[in-house]
Design a protein around this nucleic acid. Structure first.
Lengths: 159, 159
DNA sequence: TTGATTTAGTTGCAAATGAAACTATTATCG
DNA sequence: CGATAATAGTTTCATTTGCAACTAAATCAA
């Protein structure tokens, strides 16, 4: 039981608060690392991450997969293109669209970030047994389904 | 195992990403509820929550307990005082400090918000067995200790 | 006691965010 | 076809945020 009686609430035990605080602490730390070591923001990193998995997707696809909104993708992509990490190839069939991809430099950054990102994740998970890590995974998935049932936040079926 | 090989990373399975997405979804939903039903922000709510538990604490204490920074507390408190939900009594011994507390109206809002907040938390936890909820609690605590060891985010010892 | 340091809290400001408006292009339907 | 609606993506703008600088008061140390 997280709370005592029916009508008491201790902020420290309140799930939305705990999630917010933990997520902020983690985000802050990892953002500092990305910034310091690679000079990219979390949003830029998310875009590199999905482009690393799937070359040639559109900005709208990126937004869907990173759960960023369109303006955020537009801005982060623009600066990645400026820095020569991402390429944009406009679609000849539908000229509203364009395919995004990693440049050679972008692929290099991607390859360099991955192990650091995984290492940080491992640092967090090191506190947990493999069974606990698996349990956490499952718990977060179930919570996400409740918090955002319409949107199916992750564990996307095959694309 | 969350990831496949040593050097692959699927954003959907990446813990910092998952925490961020889940926390944002939860925060968004609960912020909408606070706003719609009580016309308060999450930060105002946090302040009411700690003042409801401990009357007469200072702004610095509030900041420590809500993990908000001082300017955020200052601003949110100012608007709560404007609305007559919070009282400020300046300390006669040390005139830099002042004691914050809930006004009668503030206590009423506090009493009204509590059950709604708990109901939303229950909505989330309803997906989980009591053992799972307990496990989640423990997992989040352990992660917080890793993510922010210096700061001891919650489960504060007795005050 | 008085000058330097620390602490409480507020204000200012620059950057980040998010919603809505906008442009350009394609699709739909009479 | 030609007008209307829908879609991709960008830009604008108001709000929020977080940090640094600031004011006021108290403490410390000579």
């Amino acid at each position: 039981m997280n709370h005592d009686a029916g009508d008491k609430l201790r902020l420290d035990n309140f799930l939305p608060y705990r999630l917010s605080v933990l997520s902020n602490a983690v985000s802050r730390k990892i953002a500092d690392m990305y910034e310091r070591e690679f000079d990219i923001s979390i949003w830029q990193w998310r875009i590199l991450a999905v482009l690393g998995e799937s070359e040639g997707i559109t900005s709208t696809e990126v937004a869907a997969r990173t759960l960023m909104d369109k303006p955020a993708v537009s801005r982060a992509t623009a600066s990645l293109i400026d820095r020569g990490l991402v390429t944009r190839t406009s679609d000849t069939a539908d000229r509203r669209k364009s395919a995004l991809g990693l440049s050679t430099a972008g692929r290099e950054v991607y390859n360099a970030v991955i192990p650091r990102a995984l290492a940080y994740e491992q640092e967090l998970l090191a506190a947990l047994s493999p069974e606990d890590a698996e349990a956490l995974h499952s718990l977060l998935t179930r919570l996400a389904q409740i918090a955002s049932p319409e949107r199916d936040l992750w564990d996307r079926r095959e694309d």
